[in-house]
Amino acid sequence: MVSPLVRLIALAGLLALAGCTLTPPTTTAPRDDMPVGIQDSSPAHSLLASARNARSRGDTGAAGRYLERALSMAGAGEATVLYRELAELRLAEGKPRDAEGLALRALREAPANAEWRAGLWDILATARQRQGNTDGSEAARAEAEKLRGSQMGAR
């Protein structure tokens, strides 16, 4: 038979453990204005600049190679910038299917910045329109507008 003292100690231990699990974790909610970009100190930064220069000269092949190299060394949060650049490049090259996939990938990694995400949905809408997917394009535009509307409400 278990003594009342052992029962009391066991009950106190269980209550202490239960108290620990009932405490909600402290988390920081994602901000809607989180900046999106690549730090100047990042190795991907100079490659992104080189890609933009190559694109402005009309050398889309070199621009794509720079961006793909930058992706291989991108830090946390930087990939979304590079995927977006690649999506825009693929649209300019007349490759809307590739652009759609890259924009979707950028969305998966995008921070909680409504304007940034809306811009990605705009790219998706254009890519889908160029593929003849009118319904998909309209849905993407609606998502972009919804995000812009939520941003207006936050101001």
Rank of each mutant, 00 (worst) to 15 (best):
M1V: 11
V2F: 14
R7S: 13
L8Q: 11
L8G: 01
A10D: 08
L11D: 03
L11F: 14
G13A: 13
G13K: 04
L14V: 13
L14Y: 11
A16H: 08
A18L: 15
A18T: 11
T21I: 15
L22E: 08
L22D: 04
T23H: 12
P24F: 11
P24C: 11
T26E: 12
T28S: 12
A29I: 07
A29N: 07
P30G: 07
D33M: 03
M34D: 15
P35F: 04
G37N: 05
G37Y: 07
G37L: 06
I38S: 02
I38R: 02
I38N: 00
Q39D: 15
D40R: 15
S41G: 10
P43A: 09
A44T: 01
L48K: 06
S50P: 01
A51M: 08
A51V: 04
R52K: 13
R52F: 03
A54H: 06
R55N: 05
S56D: 12
R57F: 12
G58P: 01
D59R: 05
T60E: 09
G61H: 09
G64Q: 14
G64D: 08
G64W: 05
R65W: 10
R69S: 11
A70I: 01
A70E: 02
A70W: 00
S72M: 13
S72T: 13
S72K: 15
A74G: 02
A74I: 03
G75K: 04
G75W: 06
E78M: 08
A79S: 15
A79P: 01
T80Y: 01
T80H: 02
Y83A: 01
R84H: 09
E85L: 06
E85I: 01
L86E: 00
E88W: 08
E88Q: 13
L91A: 06
A92R: 10
E93A: 15
E93I: 06
G94R: 10
G94S: 10
K95G: 02
P96V: 02
P96F: 04
D98R: 10
E100H: 07
E100R: 10
L102S: 01
L104K: 14
R105V: 06
R105H: 14
A106W: 03
R108P: 00
E109A: 13
A110Y: 02
P111C: 09
A112Q: 14
A112K: 09
A112P: 00
N113M: 04
N113K: 08
E115M: 08
W116T: 03
R117W: 06
A118S: 11
A118P: 01
L120R: 04
I123T: 10
L124I: 07
T126K: 11
T126Y: 02
A127P: 00
R128K: 15
R128Q: 14
Q129M: 10
Q129I: 02
R130W: 10
R130Q: 14
R130N: 09
G132K: 06
N133Q: 10
T134E: 13
T134W: 10
D135F: 12
S137Y: 07
S137R: 01
S137M: 07
E138S: 13
A139P: 00
A140W: 05
R141H: 09
A142F: 10
E143I: 02
A144Q: 00
A144H: 03
K146C: 02
K146H: 12
L147V: 02
L147A: 01
R148H: 07
G149W: 11
G149N: 13
M152N: 12
M152L: 12
M152T: 14
G153F: 10
A154I: 11
R155D: 07
